[in-house]
C-alpha cells in the first residue's frame, strides 16, 4: 500500500515537471531601471536588490528549485504578479504620477510588513528586513517622491 502511494507520488512528480510554468524571462532595457533614473543611495539600492528585485525587476535570479515543479509554479506566478504591480526594471516607462504612486505604495506595503512577502525570506534570509531597514526604505520613498514634484 505504502509502496503504491509512493510510486504514484513519484510518477505525478515526474509528470508535473513537463507542465510549462510560464516563468517570465528577464528583459532588461538599458536606461529604464530605477537605479539608473532616480537618486537611490547605495544603502537603499542594496536593500531593493536583495529584498525586492527577485520579483519586481528585470533582474530576477531564479534559484535551482524554481525550476522544479510545483515550486516553479509559485515562483513563476509571484514574479508575474510582482512585475504587474511594480517593475523597477521598467521604471522609465512610468509617468510622474505613477512613479509617485508606486513610491507611496512601496512605503505603505513595507511599513505594514506586507512586503517582502512572508514566504520570500525563508530561502532568502537577507530579505528579512529589520525595522531600521524598513524605515530607510520608507524615508527614501518619501524624499524620492517629493523630488518628483519639483
Amino acid at each position: 500500500m505504502v509502496r503504491k502511494i509512493l510510486i504514484i507520488a513519484v510518477v505525478l512528480f515526474v509528470i508535473i515537471q513537463f507542465i510549462p510554468t510560464g516563468r517570465p524571462d528577464n528583459n532588461p532595457v538599458p536606461g529604464k531601471d530605477i537605479l539608473e533614473i532616480e537618486d537611490v543611495p547605495d544603502e537603499v539600492a542594496v536593500l531593493l536588490k536583495t529584498a525586492c528585485y527577485d520579483c519586481h525587476s528585470q533582474q530576477v535570479t531564479y534559484p535551482w528549485y524554481s525550476y522544479v515543479a510545483p515550486v516553479s509554479f509559485l515562483v513563476a506566478r509571484d514574479v508575474r504578479e510582482g512585475r504587474e504591480h511594480l517593475d523597477f526594471g521598467h521604471w522609465g516607462d512610468l509617468s510622474k504620477r505613477k512613479r509617485i504612486k508606486a513610491l507611496d505604495e512601496i512605503s505603505e506595503t513595507v511599513e505594514e510588513g506586507e512586503m517582502p512577502m512572508k514566504i520570500y525570506p525563508i530561502m532568502h534570509p537577507g530579505a528579512k528586513l529589520t525595522d531600521a531597514q524598513r524605515q530607510k526604505i520608507m524615508e527614501w520613498c518619501e524624499s524620492c517622491a517629493d523630488k518628483l514634484f519639483e
Binding site: 504620477r97 505613477k98 509617485i100 504612486k101 513610491l103 507611496d104 505604495e105 518619501e142 517622491a145 517629493d146 514634484f149
Partner: peptide
C-alpha cells in the same frame, strides 16, 4: 501632496 496623488491615481 504625495499621498493625495497616490490615492487619487
Amino acid at each position: 501632496k504625495r499621498k493625495l496623488v497616490s490615492k487619487l491615481d
